[in-house]
Design a protein around this nucleic acid. Structure first.
Lengths: 114, 114
DNA sequence: TGCAATATATAAACAACTTATATATTATAT
DNA sequence: ATATAATATATAAGTTGTTTATATATTGCA
Protein backbone atom coordinates (compact mmCIF):
# COMPACT_ATOMS: atom_id res chain seq x y z
CA UNK A 1 0.00 0.00 0.00
CA UNK A 2 2.78 2.42 0.89
CA UNK A 3 5.34 2.46 -1.92
CA UNK A 4 8.69 1.04 -0.93
CA UNK A 5 10.69 4.09 -1.91
CA UNK A 6 9.04 6.04 0.92
CA UNK A 7 10.16 3.46 3.46
CA UNK A 8 13.73 3.08 2.27
CA UNK A 9 15.50 5.55 4.51
CA UNK A 10 13.56 4.62 7.63
CA UNK A 11 14.20 0.89 7.48
CA UNK A 12 17.25 0.96 9.73
CA UNK A 13 15.53 3.04 12.40
CA UNK A 14 12.40 0.90 12.33
CA UNK A 15 14.44 -2.25 12.86
CA UNK A 16 16.43 -0.75 15.71
CA UNK A 17 13.34 0.60 17.41
CA UNK A 18 11.63 -2.81 17.31
CA UNK A 19 14.71 -4.55 18.68
CA UNK A 20 14.90 -2.06 21.51
CA UNK A 21 11.25 -2.67 22.29
CA UNK A 22 11.26 -6.45 22.09
CA UNK A 23 14.71 -7.30 23.36
CA UNK A 24 15.47 -9.73 20.59
CA UNK A 25 13.82 -10.67 17.32
CA UNK A 26 14.52 -12.77 14.25
CA UNK A 27 14.19 -11.53 10.68
CA UNK A 28 10.87 -13.06 9.84
CA UNK A 29 9.44 -11.83 13.12
CA UNK A 30 10.48 -8.27 12.30
CA UNK A 31 8.62 -8.29 8.98
CA UNK A 32 5.50 -9.69 10.72
CA UNK A 33 5.65 -7.07 13.45
CA UNK A 34 5.96 -4.19 11.01
CA UNK A 35 2.99 -5.48 9.02
CA UNK A 36 0.98 -5.86 12.19
CA UNK A 37 1.78 -2.38 13.50
CA UNK A 38 0.94 -0.74 10.19
CA UNK A 39 -2.14 -2.79 9.23
CA UNK A 40 -0.25 -4.32 6.33
CA UNK A 41 0.68 -0.96 4.89
CA UNK A 42 4.41 -1.49 5.28
CA UNK A 43 5.88 -4.77 4.07
CA UNK A 44 9.61 -5.25 4.40
CA UNK A 45 11.35 -7.39 1.80
CA UNK A 46 14.05 -9.81 2.88
CA UNK A 47 16.38 -8.54 0.19
CA UNK A 48 16.34 -5.23 2.02
CA UNK A 49 16.04 -6.47 5.60
CA UNK A 50 18.88 -8.99 5.80
CA UNK A 51 21.55 -6.77 4.30
CA UNK A 52 20.56 -4.10 6.85
CA UNK A 53 20.76 -6.58 9.74
CA UNK A 54 24.12 -7.88 8.57
CA UNK A 55 25.48 -4.40 8.17
CA UNK A 56 24.33 -3.33 11.62
CA UNK A 57 25.99 -6.46 13.00
CA UNK A 58 29.28 -5.71 11.26
CA UNK A 59 29.12 -2.18 12.65
CA UNK A 60 28.80 -3.50 16.19
CA UNK A 61 25.27 -2.20 16.69
CA UNK A 62 23.73 -5.68 16.81
CA UNK A 63 24.87 -9.17 17.74
CA UNK A 64 23.18 -12.52 17.14
CA UNK A 65 22.07 -15.60 19.04
CA UNK A 66 21.30 -18.72 17.00
CA UNK A 67 18.73 -21.13 18.31
CA UNK A 68 17.13 -24.32 17.12
CA UNK A 69 13.36 -24.14 17.01
CA UNK A 70 11.46 -27.12 15.54
CA UNK A 71 14.48 -28.17 13.50
CA UNK A 72 14.73 -24.69 12.05
CA UNK A 73 17.50 -22.32 12.82
CA UNK A 74 16.40 -19.00 14.17
CA UNK A 75 18.84 -16.15 14.26
CA UNK A 76 17.91 -13.64 16.90
CA UNK A 77 19.25 -10.12 16.63
CA UNK A 78 19.96 -8.04 19.74
CA UNK A 79 21.30 -4.56 20.45
CA UNK A 80 24.83 -4.25 21.74
CA UNK A 81 25.66 -1.70 24.43
CA UNK A 82 26.75 0.63 21.69
CA UNK A 83 23.56 -0.21 19.81
CA UNK A 84 21.41 1.12 22.64
CA UNK A 85 22.87 4.59 22.34
CA UNK A 86 22.56 4.46 18.54
CA UNK A 87 18.83 3.69 18.76
CA UNK A 88 18.16 6.63 21.01
CA UNK A 89 19.78 8.97 18.50
CA UNK A 90 18.04 7.38 15.51
CA UNK A 91 14.60 7.62 17.10
CA UNK A 92 15.19 11.27 17.87
CA UNK A 93 16.07 11.88 14.24
CA UNK A 94 13.02 9.99 13.04
CA UNK A 95 10.76 12.06 15.27
CA UNK A 96 12.25 15.26 13.89
CA UNK A 97 11.74 13.91 10.40
CA UNK A 98 8.09 13.10 11.08
CA UNK A 99 7.54 16.59 12.47
CA UNK A 100 9.18 18.17 9.44
CA UNK A 101 7.10 16.13 7.03
CA UNK A 102 3.94 17.14 8.84
CA UNK A 103 4.82 20.78 8.58
CA UNK A 104 5.32 20.44 4.85
CA UNK A 105 2.18 18.42 4.24
CA UNK A 106 -0.04 20.28 6.68
CA UNK A 107 0.55 23.76 5.33
CA UNK A 108 -2.71 25.18 4.08
CA UNK A 109 -3.28 25.02 0.31
CA UNK A 110 -3.31 28.79 -0.05
CA UNK A 111 -5.82 31.14 1.55
CA UNK A 112 -7.92 31.10 -1.59
CA UNK A 113 -11.13 30.55 0.36
CA UNK A 114 -10.55 33.21 3.02
CA UNK B 1 20.31 17.91 11.09
CA UNK B 2 18.07 15.20 9.64
CA UNK B 3 20.23 12.67 7.81
CA UNK B 4 19.66 12.67 4.07
CA UNK B 5 18.88 8.97 3.86
CA UNK B 6 15.66 9.56 5.79
CA UNK B 7 14.52 12.18 3.30
CA UNK B 8 15.35 10.23 0.16
CA UNK B 9 12.03 8.54 -0.50
CA UNK B 10 9.95 11.61 0.31
CA UNK B 11 11.76 14.07 -1.93
CA UNK B 12 9.43 13.64 -4.89
CA UNK B 13 6.30 14.09 -2.79
CA UNK B 14 7.71 17.12 -1.01
CA UNK B 15 8.49 18.80 -4.32
CA UNK B 16 5.06 18.04 -5.76
CA UNK B 17 3.27 19.27 -2.65
CA UNK B 18 5.14 22.58 -2.70
CA UNK B 19 4.40 23.08 -6.38
CA UNK B 20 0.73 22.40 -5.78
CA UNK B 21 0.74 24.92 -2.97
CA UNK B 22 2.65 27.68 -4.67
CA UNK B 23 1.54 27.31 -8.25
CA UNK B 24 5.03 27.52 -9.67
CA UNK B 25 8.53 27.51 -8.22
CA UNK B 26 12.13 27.37 -9.42
CA UNK B 27 14.71 24.96 -8.06
CA UNK B 28 16.54 27.30 -5.75
CA UNK B 29 13.23 28.52 -4.36
CA UNK B 30 12.20 24.96 -3.53
CA UNK B 31 15.33 24.32 -1.46
CA UNK B 32 14.79 27.63 0.39
CA UNK B 33 11.17 26.83 1.11
CA UNK B 34 11.93 23.38 2.49
CA UNK B 35 14.61 24.83 4.76
CA UNK B 36 12.23 27.51 5.93
CA UNK B 37 9.36 25.11 6.66
CA UNK B 38 11.60 22.73 8.59
CA UNK B 39 13.74 25.27 10.47
CA UNK B 40 16.78 24.22 8.50
CA UNK B 41 16.39 20.56 9.42
CA UNK B 42 15.89 19.44 5.84
CA UNK B 43 18.31 20.66 3.21
CA UNK B 44 17.85 19.46 -0.35
CA UNK B 45 20.92 19.09 -2.51
CA UNK B 46 20.80 20.18 -6.14
CA UNK B 47 22.34 16.94 -7.27
CA UNK B 48 19.23 15.23 -5.97
CA UNK B 49 16.66 17.94 -6.72
CA UNK B 50 17.33 18.61 -10.40
CA UNK B 51 17.34 14.97 -11.50
CA UNK B 52 13.97 14.59 -9.75
CA UNK B 53 12.55 17.70 -11.43
CA UNK B 54 13.81 16.59 -14.85
CA UNK B 55 12.40 13.12 -14.38
CA UNK B 56 9.00 14.43 -13.33
CA UNK B 57 9.04 16.66 -16.40
CA UNK B 58 9.87 13.76 -18.72
CA UNK B 59 7.02 11.80 -17.15
CA UNK B 60 4.55 14.56 -17.94
CA UNK B 61 3.91 15.46 -14.31
CA UNK B 62 5.58 18.87 -14.58
CA UNK B 63 6.25 21.40 -17.29
CA UNK B 64 8.51 24.44 -17.28
CA UNK B 65 8.39 28.17 -17.97
CA UNK B 66 11.71 29.97 -18.45
CA UNK B 67 11.95 33.59 -17.48
CA UNK B 68 14.63 36.20 -17.38
CA UNK B 69 15.07 37.80 -13.98
CA UNK B 70 17.93 40.29 -13.49
CA UNK B 71 19.88 38.75 -16.35
CA UNK B 72 19.56 35.32 -14.77
CA UNK B 73 17.48 32.55 -16.21
CA UNK B 74 14.88 31.18 -13.90
CA UNK B 75 13.20 27.94 -14.75
CA UNK B 76 9.82 27.65 -13.13
CA UNK B 77 8.28 24.23 -12.65
CA UNK B 78 4.51 23.75 -12.74
CA UNK B 79 2.13 20.82 -12.41
CA UNK B 80 0.45 19.53 -15.55
CA UNK B 81 -3.19 18.46 -15.44
CA UNK B 82 -1.98 14.92 -14.98
CA UNK B 83 0.41 16.18 -12.31
CA UNK B 84 -2.44 17.48 -10.20
CA UNK B 85 -3.95 14.02 -9.84
CA UNK B 86 -0.51 12.54 -9.13
CA UNK B 87 0.06 14.96 -6.24
CA UNK B 88 -3.22 14.09 -4.58
CA UNK B 89 -2.29 10.41 -4.61
CA UNK B 90 1.27 11.05 -3.41
CA UNK B 91 0.16 13.19 -0.49
CA UNK B 92 -2.29 10.52 0.56
CA UNK B 93 0.51 7.97 0.54
CA UNK B 94 2.79 10.28 2.52
CA UNK B 95 0.12 10.78 5.15
CA UNK B 96 -0.31 7.03 5.49
CA UNK B 97 3.43 6.69 5.78
CA UNK B 98 3.62 9.31 8.52
CA UNK B 99 0.83 7.56 10.42
CA UNK B 100 2.57 4.22 10.10
CA UNK B 101 5.87 5.64 11.31
CA UNK B 102 4.15 7.17 14.30
CA UNK B 103 2.59 3.88 15.24
CA UNK B 104 5.98 2.20 15.14
CA UNK B 105 7.78 4.91 17.05
CA UNK B 106 5.01 5.66 19.54
CA UNK B 107 4.51 2.12 20.80
CA UNK B 108 5.35 1.98 24.48
CA UNK B 109 8.82 0.65 25.34
CA UNK B 110 7.39 -2.39 27.14
CA UNK B 111 5.20 -2.25 30.22
CA UNK B 112 8.24 -2.64 32.43
CA UNK B 113 7.16 0.22 34.66
CA UNK B 114 3.49 -0.75 35.00
C1' DT C 1 38.82 42.67 -4.22
C1' DG C 2 36.92 38.83 -2.39
C1' DC C 3 33.23 36.37 -0.33
C1' DA C 4 28.46 35.06 0.23
C1' DA C 5 24.18 34.48 -1.84
C1' DT C 6 21.63 33.60 -5.92
C1' DA C 7 20.75 30.15 -9.83
C1' DT C 8 20.97 25.86 -12.83
C1' DA C 9 23.12 21.75 -14.26
C1' DT C 10 25.96 17.44 -15.20
C1' DA C 11 29.05 13.41 -14.26
C1' DA C 12 31.59 9.97 -11.67
C1' DA C 13 31.40 7.32 -7.78
C1' DC C 14 28.92 5.14 -4.36
C1' DA C 15 25.04 3.22 -1.64
C1' DA C 16 20.85 0.96 -1.42
C1' DC C 17 16.94 -1.46 -2.85
C1' DT C 18 14.19 -4.76 -5.98
C1' DT C 19 13.67 -8.93 -8.09
C1' DA C 20 14.88 -13.45 -8.65
C1' DT C 21 16.63 -17.37 -6.85
C1' DA C 22 18.04 -21.23 -3.57
C1' DT C 23 17.09 -24.07 0.31
C1' DA C 24 14.28 -26.45 3.95
C1' DT C 25 10.48 -27.57 7.38
C1' DT C 26 5.65 -27.67 9.10
C1' DA C 27 0.73 -27.20 8.76
C1' DT C 28 -3.37 -27.16 6.15
C1' DA C 29 -6.33 -28.32 2.51
C1' DT C 30 -7.85 -31.42 -1.18
C1' DA D 1 -1.00 -38.81 -0.95
C1' DT D 2 -0.08 -34.30 -2.67
C1' DA D 3 0.07 -29.57 -3.24
C1' DT D 4 0.05 -25.12 -1.35
C1' DA D 5 0.83 -21.69 2.11
C1' DA D 6 3.37 -20.26 5.87
C1' DT D 7 7.63 -20.31 8.23
C1' DA D 8 12.74 -19.02 7.90
C1' DT D 9 17.35 -17.26 6.13
C1' DA D 10 20.27 -15.73 2.55
C1' DT D 11 22.78 -14.07 -1.76
C1' DA D 12 23.50 -11.92 -6.40
C1' DA D 13 22.57 -9.28 -10.53
C1' DG D 14 20.52 -5.41 -12.08
C1' DT D 15 18.54 -1.04 -11.37
C1' DT D 16 17.84 3.25 -9.24
C1' DG D 17 18.99 7.16 -6.86
C1' DT D 18 21.98 10.03 -4.10
C1' DT D 19 26.39 12.32 -2.81
C1' DT D 20 30.22 14.87 -4.02
C1' DA D 21 32.62 17.53 -7.11
C1' DT D 22 32.60 20.54 -10.68
C1' DA D 23 31.28 24.33 -14.11
C1' DT D 24 29.23 28.67 -15.04
C1' DA D 25 27.40 33.42 -14.06
C1' DT D 26 25.34 37.60 -11.59
C1' DT D 27 24.43 40.65 -7.56
C1' DG D 28 25.32 42.62 -3.08
C1' DC D 29 28.16 43.47 0.77
C1' DA D 30 32.42 44.17 3.35
Amino acid sequence: MIPTDLIKGSLKTIVLKLLKENGRMYGYEITRKVEELTDGKIKLTYGALYPVLHKLESEGVLFTESENFNNRIRIYYLLTTHGHSVVAEKIKELNEFIESLQRIVDTKPGLSYA
